[in-house]
């Protein structure tokens, strides 16, 4: 088994995993096997440089909480679906697709859920204003040099600590 690319931190009382999109499903499978059996929530969001999926998990037996997130670029926002692990995320993934535009590969029924079927935009993206119109001067931020799942690179030359 190859090493999973993720970075684990503790924020408040939760374990937060930032994971590489290719290892997103493998990490969630591992967490499910660890006892995180209850799907609390799934959020899609626009970070300014790409789209992010955030999964909130809970273990009914062990009472532990975990948050897993990954970033995908605007031009290819695809992550694997995890509805077979937690069927309760089926509508949450549909909502993230509907409002934010993330596509979940392998979702059994990926249709719009809250908006009507003839909508063409995903209104929660930052390129649209509250009325759903394109913001004329919106530009995507550059993809970060060190994505959240990588440790920041050591500075080679001296600088401010």
């Amino acid at each position: 088994m190859t090493e999973l690319r993720y970075k684990k931190t503790t924020e408040f009382d939760e374990e937060v995993y930032a994971v590489h999109p290719e290892d997103y499903r493998a990490l969630l499978e591992a967490l499910k096997a660890e006892g995180f059996d209850y799907p609390r929530s799934l959020t899609g969001m626009d970070t300014g440089y790409g789209l992010r999926v955030v999964v909130h998990l809970y273990g009914i037996e062990n009472g532990k909480k975990a948050t897993v997130y990954t970033d995908v670029p605007y031009d290819d926002p695809v992550v694997p679906s995890v509805t077979d692990l937690w069927p309760g995320l089926e509508w949450f993934e549909r909502e993230a697709y509907d409002l934010v535009g993330i596509r979940f590969a392998g979702h059994p029924d990926l249709r719009r859920i809250l908006l009507e079927e003839d909508w063409t935009i995903h209104p929660l993206q930052k390129r649209y204003d509250t009325g759903g119109y394109l913001l004329p001067d919106w530009q995507p931020a550059p993809w970060p040099e060190t994505p959240p799942w990588e440790e920041p690179k050591e500075r080679e030359e001296g600088g401010e600590a």
Partner: peptide
């Protein structure tokens, strides 16, 4: 049931993202 709110802040007066996880939404599945 379980009502959750996910708040993402970028340090400004306006939130970057707010997500409401509503119990009836999950229950209706």
């Amino acid at each position: 049931g379980h009502l959750g709110t996910y708040v993402v802040s970028d340090g400004s007066e306006y939130p970057l993202r707010i997500k409401h996880r509503s119990p009836s939404f999950a229950n209706l599945q």
